[in-house]
Amino acid sequence: MSLIVGAYPAQPAGSQQEFFRGLAAVPAVRGLELPYGPHGGNPWPAGAPAEWAAVVTSIPGTMQRLGASAAFGLASPDAGGRREALEFVAGLHAYVLSLKGEGRQVEAVELHSAPHPGADAAMFRASLSEILGWDWGTTRVLVEHCDAPRPGGRPEKGFLPFGEEVEVVRSLVEQVGSRVGLVINWARSVIETRNPDTAAEHIALAREAGVLAGVMFSGCSPDATEFGYPWIDAHLPAVEVEGAPPGSLLNRAGIQWCLAAAGTGPFIGFKVGLPREGLTVQDRVDRLRQMCALIEGS
């Protein structure tokens, strides 16, 4: 099995080249999930192999732009907020083209159905339809599901409900085929319901609807941990990984259950955070290697 790794929450403040060279020695890794910020993306990481693939996620920039403007979002019913989000994705598009111009293989981009509150499925579909009209080449435009609003509780993201996103993407698949799809992030599905079974259920439903394009493993906990408050979306490692909080709900059995639900079609990857201080570069690489082993089933 070959994996896309969101390494940016785990990388050290310095020694980036050493870190990515170490990660390149892990056979299961075939590429990186790269973050796109509120005003742009970073250069290809020093030390990362030129032949690796990339999946670009817009979640860091989406959350920061949403924090500055409550109407911002591709699903916004506010015309100005939706236009701002489309301009943001236009910048992401230019970033993808720049990476591809350097010879990088950008498999996909991951977009999100902000804002909260007030995300509207019809507006989200209109935004995605416009975005799919741009020239992406072989790069796929994917929706990554985040937790939806839930009665009686404060959400982490609070974007569109899963069923509405599935229907939006399914309707677009009918028009443009596999150029569009849906990505399930384990933690973001579990945070939504507080039930570890939800991730596999979402995966199975997306696959049944013909929209499943990717699965990213990232953990969460009902307890306060060094990563933050209970149910924070902070990319906790699986509980079997050295140094992981004992309350992390992501584990080997859950990973294998989700892989069985996903089948062989979607890309598979993971994203875990690690403390910024107190770990050597080799410690970081070793913990990402342990995540790879859990997913590979060894």
Rank of each mutant, 00 (worst) to 15 (best):
I4Y: 11
V5C: 02
Y8C: 02
A10E: 08
A10G: 13
Q11S: 12
Q11F: 06
P12L: 02
A13S: 14
Q17V: 09
F19T: 01
F19G: 01
G22A: 11
A24D: 02
V26S: 13
L32M: 03
E33Q: 13
G41H: 07
N42E: 15
P45R: 06
A46I: 04
T57Q: 05
T57V: 05
G61Q: 05
G61P: 05
L74F: 01
A79Y: 05
A79M: 05
G80W: 10
L86T: 07
V89I: 15
G91E: 14
L92T: 04
L92Y: 09
L92Q: 14
H93S: 07
L97Q: 15
L97W: 11
D120V: 06
F124W: 10
S127Y: 08
I131M: 13
G137D: 12
E156N: 12
W186I: 05
A187N: 07
I191C: 09
P196I: 08
E201F: 06
A204M: 05
E208G: 10
G210I: 03
G214C: 06
V215Q: 03
M216Y: 03
F217Y: 14
G219R: 00
C220K: 06
C220E: 08
S221I: 09
A224W: 02
E226N: 10
P237L: 01
S248D: 07
N251Q: 12
Q256V: 03
L259H: 05
G263Y: 02
T264K: 15
K271A: 10
L279W: 04
D283K: 08
Q290H: 03
E296R: 15
